[in-house]
Structure formats: C-alpha cells, structure tokens
C-alpha cells in the first residue's frame, strides 16, 4: 500500500482496559505522534467509523456494548485489538469476570502487542489495518451482523430491572 484514497476514521472503545493502552491511543493523536497527518481521526460515532479500535478484554457487562458498536459500523470495517488484554486477556485472563480477548466476540483483523502498547506499535497496527480496509473495500466484502450466543440471559433481565 503506497497511498490512501480516503481518510479512515477510527472509533475507540475501552473494554475493561486499565487505561494504559487508551491513553497511548490518545497520545497517537497528539503532536508527538500525530496520526492525523495520515487523515486518521478519532470519532465518537460508530456510523462514521471505518476502524474499530478496542483495548482491554471482554467482560460480562461490555459484551453488548462492543457488539452494538461493531454492528453499527458501516462496511467495510476492520477491528484492531490493541494490547495484550484485547488479544488474550493478558495478566487478567484468570480473573473471574474476564472472558478473554476481543476475538471471542467479534472478528479481529489486527492484533497489537504490548502492555501497555506503545504508540509506535499502535500506529503500525492501524496502518496495517488500513491495508486490510482497502482490500475489503476492493472486494466489496460485508461483515455479517455479529450476535452473542453466550450472553447470560439472567444478567440481562437484571439490567432491565435496574434501579428505579
């Protein structure tokens, strides 16, 4: 890949991450690393986003949020798992509330190493994702709507019952 035809926008979601990777993603946007020179903008709206950047691992409460954001994104879309927690659960994989990496829930295209992931490796991961995005675009690929088969129905009921 030598150039980009369009400016890819990213959406970032913190799924039970410790903040370490999150602040490094933010650091990528700031003058020292400045990914905006590649046309990359961090947006808050999934409908505007091409790349889904997730930090941290899947837990009971954020399952539906991750799915919700992923399914709202337009095709073609790419998911990037940033940091070891998003890849496999990392040091927290033995915690009772951690189900594991993001790929337990949604298809992941790029894994970024590190605890916390360094801005350089995050940028490298995003640039790799851009290549995959271009490929998906040229193939006209469309991702299926992902549903969660493991969602604990009982907890779901609790949430609806909520506090009055």
């Amino acid at each position: 890949m030598t150039y980009l035809a369009k400016s890819p926008w990213i959406i970032h979601y913190d799924a039970s991450s410790c903040n370490g990777c999150d602040i490094e993603i933010l650091a990528c946007l700031t003058p020292m690393y400045d990914v905006e020179r590649f046309g990359i903008i961090n947006t808050g709206n999934p409908k505007h986003a091409d790349i889904f950047v997730v930090t941290g691992s899947v837990n009971e409460q954020n399952r539906e949020v991750i799915l919700n954001i992923y399914n709202q994104m337009p095709d073609p879309k790419v998911a990037v798992a940033v940091g070891i927690c998003a890849t496999s659960g990392g040091v927290f994989r033995e915690c009772y509330n951690v189900a594991g990496g993001i790929d337990k829930l949604i298809p992941v295209d790029v894994y970024v190493m590190g605890c916390a992931a360094r801005p350089e490796s995050i940028i490298d991961g995003i640039v790799t994702a851009l290549g995959i995005l271009e490929k998906k675009r040229s193939e006209g690929a469309s991702a299926p709507v992902v549903t969660d088969h493991h969602m604990n129905k009982e907890h779901h009921k609790h949430a609806e019952g909520g506090v009055q």
Partner: peptide, 16 residues
Amino acid sequence: NIDFKGTFYKTTIKHP
C-alpha cells in the same frame, strides 16, 4: 439509600 439490588457490578459468577 440507593439500593441497586444486585446490579452495581454485573459479574459472570454470582457473588464471586
């Protein structure tokens, strides 16, 4: 005074 009735933390395992 503000009773969440068990929804403050949602955990995979009850009362972990």
